[in-house]
């Protein structure tokens, strides 16, 4: 089956800035794909390459098997939900939503009906006569979604669509977006710098840094088996053990990640690895206690269940964990 979006060694350089640098990427049809990364890592530029607002300075892009370089945005069946929504201020909500159909020459009645259906789909029926200025941020976001979806795009691009919403609305929209995507079967490419959002919504995630993909995989892969120190740092609050420490533990001398909840304090069984250390800080987080332990210069965070006793600051402890939870990484 052809990929929805295919990047082959794609670069987009702005002078000396390598916004996107030799990226290979294959997004499957019908997939919910998230692009995660810190500010300036090239996520938006990747999206703009797919939409056609930018042209690659190197490499090759295909959308559903067709070459996309040199094709203007208005001839791609790809639509975008912009970060600032970019609703047309001089048009009513209905005309905003019907805009794509209007420029394609679809009749007035037909496009009105389609636009009203799209508004109903995003739970804004009857809002058609208002102006964008008369809607709340969340409502505008839904209009932007309806305006894109009414064109039945093959790929929908969303650039931090929930960035401007408050936490509660955000969580609600995350769920709605996910449901909508499953029911429509459209390929979604979703940009975010919130790892929680990416982990909970996406089928697969690409983690970006400095214009390159650091790791591409399922949320579970990314969270549990970070391949580089950068991913471990960025995605979860994983501990990163240095290669020297790993060597002392008798595993191959490579840096490794270790999630805080995989570590136990004090008890150690035969098949487990263990490290001695001194408690330097602790804090109560509700379901867990967060304990910082200094193991010969290496700071390790332990998430200890609240039911377990917490050692005092300054106490000497043994940290125990299973070899399976220790993930060796390629040092970047």
């Amino acid at each position: 089956m052809t990929a929805a979006v295919l990047f082959e060694n794609v670069s987009r350089h702005f002078g000396a800035v390598k916004a996107v640098d030799a990226v290979d990427l294959e997004i499957a049809a019908g997939e919910f794909f998230a692009m995660l990364g810190p500010s300036g890592s090239g996520k938006t530029t990747c999206l703009r390459l797919m939409a056609g607002f930018e042209q690659p300075t190197g490499g090759h892009i295909e959308i559903f098997g067709e070459t996309a370089e040199g094709v203007p945005p208005y001839r791609r069946s790809v639509n975008t939900v912009f970060q600032d929504y970019a609703l047309f201020p001089h048009l009513s909500i209905l005309d905003n939503v019907a805009y794509g159909l209007m420029v394609k020459g679809i009749g007035k009645e037909e496009r009105r009906k389609a636009a009203e259906d799209a508004l109903a789909m995003v739970k804004l029926p009857g809002y058609g006569q208002r102006r964008p200025g008369q809607l709340s941020g969340g409502q505008r976001q839904r209009v932007a979604l309806a305006r894109a979806l009414v064109n039945k795009p093959k790929v929908l691009l969303l650039d931090e669509p929930l960035g401007a919403l408050d936490l509660k609305l955000r969580e609600q929209m995350q769920e709605e977006l996910k449901t909508l995507q499953k029911s429509l079967g459209i390929t979604f490419v979703f940009v975010t710098h919130d790892q929680g959002e990416a982990l909970s919504m996406a089928d697969r995630i690409a983690v970006f840094n400095d214009g390159k993909i650091q790791q591409l995989g399922t949320p579970e892969d990314i969270y549990k088996r970070p391949q580089t120190r950068f991913v471990a740092d960025f995605v979860g609050s994983s501990n990163v053990l240095s290669s020297a420490t790993c060597a002392r533990l008798g595993v191959p001398a490579k840096a490794a990640s270790l999630r805080p909840e995989a570590i136990a304090i004090g008890t150690s069984w035969a098949e487990q690895l263990s490290l001695p250390g001194t408690v330097t800080a602790r804090s109560f987080l509700g379901a867990t206690n967060r304990v910082s332990v200094d193991c010969s210069g290496e700071k390790i965070i332990v998430a200890s269940p609240a039911a377990m006793p917490v050692p005092d600051i300054g106490a000497e402890v043994q940290l125990a964990f299973s070899r399976n939870d220790l993930h060796l990484m390629e040092e970047a």
């Binding site: 939409a51 970019a86 805009y99």
Partner: peptide
């Protein structure tokens, strides 16, 4: 860009 994106 939004307009071009929508096919104009």
């Amino acid at each position: 860009e939004a307009s071009m994106d929508l096919g104009a």
